[in-house]
Design a protein around this nucleic acid. Structure first.
Length: 597
RNA sequence: GCCCCCAUCGUCCAGUGGCCGAGGACGCCGCCCUUUCAAGGCGGUAACACGGGUUCGAAUCCCGUUGGGGGUGCCA
């Protein structure tokens, strides 16, 4: 097998690495990327068994098939010659999977960094997966992430005529044969043959069945595999992956209903849409050789792509490592938090989410972990993507989200909170939790009050969804008393009543803001801090221990934004009223009196 | 069963034959700061799966083992 040049078309000087497996790429920036990966691929290629077989099957020629360009970089699909055309091709499932989001991101990055086209194609050939709102959900999730498609969304369900053409063509060319075996029959034969869990045994391959049975029912159509030889997937991330044909069975390409299956529809679309780079999950790697065979069979049969311009060479492939859970298993929707919409609703910022997604399987050479989409586009390299599955770590996502929130200008932070605070109108599009998510009555939100608290809240939350609980005490008539906090910090503290009484007196002596009365001191954070400090000294406690009961009385919880600012925003009247109420409640629930003895 | 992929701290990455007595980040632990909680600062914990080989020298290259994962559908 000849040395294989790097298939990564956009790489300006990759052809330098072609010569031998030991040659070192001399390109300067970024130094490691090209030389290393190409070296990897070359060694992988050397490992591949040399093709030797020949076939007379109805399928395509049985020689070693590969998507590696034969004569140099420029031969790989349209990828090298023109701007890349990448596609994100999810099947609608009712929600947007984080793994899909990452695949979409990597595709989007390749398009953006190369002046290419990012195409969205909904793979809904399966009638069960064909709900309109599901497709809309994909579009809106992509929009939220800032990755709008340049083309599409195309719907496979709207392209059946095209698939029918391809099927007829392949049938005429002898690549397909009809099969009327049932799954049970196949299993029975395999079992009899002593094979545990096998594929199709080729039973109908030479029976010459018609596409339609005597009863008028359609038959499934299988692709006739070349019996010998191998097909090689030249993968940008993994190098050459060789699949012996003898280990692949004759796969079904058309259902008995006449509907096309994944490999067929997927390849027809990629050809028609002139896709140059196929970037998707590693779970599709084992089916890629099938797709390559179909791609080649279609070309050999004279298929004319919708896009025109002649039949395209194979696309460049890149199979991304899977995203896994703590059990190292593929993320499952049943037990793992995989819906992007849920993260959106919890208050994760799209830019933070994208940042984290990018880090799952890739990182810039300088070790930076926080970067803008623009920097990502500039630095990202598909060939630098890791090979091993990555654990989707919500804790780290959350940390990064917190970094992004804290970096926001306060004004923007306030705006971004609107979907959760309910105050004013918000721009729509990015927002999200269901309307009325805020825990207070619609009309009681006070923009000015929230604005005063915002800087303090901003540095205390890691997600926007945590914001309401930080400020709800300001917009509710009664503080939302946490039973546990009340029991521990107020009821459980023998000095609480004394502190509350003293606080009531000290704060009451301050002016409420208007003129007249009081000590002449304003009801502001600085003064409140000083007064509370004095109060603490008078009862012989530290400020930290003193503010506890007051905090719970006023805000209902023992943790929250700084107390004195909170009190200032609350205002003198409400502070005094809540202190009274707390004293009242304490008197009723826990009759005072020192414990005996 | 068969085919394929993968293997550095608990996690995500850095590492591409000597600069590695392995670096960063998240998490965790401790200290500092401090009106709670965060944030921030400082310090700490913790990994090259195993065995062979190649080499003067291997986390790095090769082979094998083990382990994990994916695929094996008239799903995608």
């Amino acid at each position: 097998m000849p040395a294989t040049p790097c298939a990564w078309a956009s790489h300006p000087r990759c052809s330098r690495c072609v010569t031998t497996a030991t040659s070192t790429c001399s390109m300067s920036t970024p130094a490691r990327s090209c030389g290393t990966r190409c070296a990897r691929r070359l060694t992988a290629a050397r490992r591949a068994p040399s093709p030797s077989s020949r076939t007379s099957s109805p399928g395509v020629a049985g020689e070693s098939q590969t998507n590696a360009p034969a004569g140099g970089v420029g031969a790989a699909g349209g990828g090298a010659a023109s701007a890349p055309r990448v596609r994100f091709a999810p099947s609608p499932t009712g929600y947007f999977h984080v793994g899909s989001a990452r695949a979409a991101l990597y595709n989007w990055l390749v398009a953006r960094q190369s002046g290419g086209t990012f195409i969205l194609r909904i793979e809904d050939t399966d009638a069960e997966r064909n709900r309109e709102e599901w497709a809309e959900g994909i579009v809106s999730a992509l929009h939220w992430l800032g990755m709008d498609a340049d083309e599409g969304p195309y719907r496979q369900s709207a392209r059946s005529a095209r698939y029918a053409e391809a099927i007829d063509l392949l049938w005429s060319a002898g690549n397909l044969y009809a099969c009327d075996c049932t799954r049970d029959e196949i299993d029975a034969r395999n079992k009899a043959a002593g094979i545990a869990t096998p594929g199709y045994d080729g039973h109908c391959r030479d029976r010459g069945l018609e596409r339609v049975g005597p009863d008028g029912a359609g038959r499934a159509l299988r692709f006739a595999m070349p019996p010998e030889g191998t097909t090689t997937v030249a993968d940008v991330i993994r190098g050459d992956v060789v699949f012996p044909h003898e280990a692949m069975d004759d796969f079904v390409v058309v259902k008995s209903s006449g509907a096309p299956l994944f490999v067929l529809a997927n390849v027809v679309d990629d050809v028609d849409m002139a896709i140059t780079h196929v970037i998707r999950g590693e779970d599709l790697l084992p089916t890629t050789p099938r797709g390559i065979l179909v791609w080649q069979a279609l070309g050999a049969a004279g298929w004319e792509p919708e896009a025109g311009g002649g039949y395209p060479g194979l696309p460049v492939f890149a199979h991304l490592p899977l995203l896994v859970n703590e059990q190292r298993k593929k993320l499952s929707k049943r037990r793992d938090p995989v819906a992007v919409e849920d993260y959106r609703d919890k208050g994760y910022l799209p830019e933070a989410f994208v940042n984290y997604l990018a880090l799952l399987g890739w990182s810039p050479h300088d070790g930076r972990e926080l970067f803008t989409a623009g920097e990502l586009i500039e630095w990202f390299r598909l060939e630098d993507v890791n090979h091993a599955p990555a654990f989707f770590d919500v804790a780290k996502l959350t940390h990064i989200n917190g970094e992004y929130i804290r970096a926001l200008p306060v004004d923007e932070f306030i705006e971004r909170c609107r979907p959760w605070t309910g105050g004013g109108a918000h721009g729509g599009g990015t927002g999200t939790p269901a309307a009325g998510a805020a825990p207070w009555p619609a009309g009681s939100f006070d923009d000015a009050a929230f604005a005063r608290m915002a800087p303090l809240v901003q540095e205390r939350v890691a997600t926007l969804g945590e914001v309401p609980a930080m400020v709800d005490f300001l917009f509710l008539d009664e503080p939302p008393v946490d039973p546990g906090d009340w029991a521990k910090v107020v009821e459980g503290d023998e000095g609480a009543a004394q502190i509350l009484e003293a606080a009531r007196a000290a704060f009451g002596a301050l002016e409420g803001g208007g003129a007249g009365g009081g000590s002449g001191s304003a009801f502001d954070a600085e003064t409140l801090h000083r007064v509370t400090q004095e109060l603490a000294e008078s009862v012989g406690r530290k400020l930290a221990k003193t503010q506890g009961p007051i905090r719970v009385a006023l805000t209902g919880r023992r943790v929250g934004p700084p107390l004195f600012e909170s009190m200032a925003v609350l205002g003198r009247d409400r502070v005094l009223a809540r202190l009274d109420a707390a004293l009242d409640r304490l008197a009723r629930s826990a009759p005072a009196g020192p414990p005996a003895g």
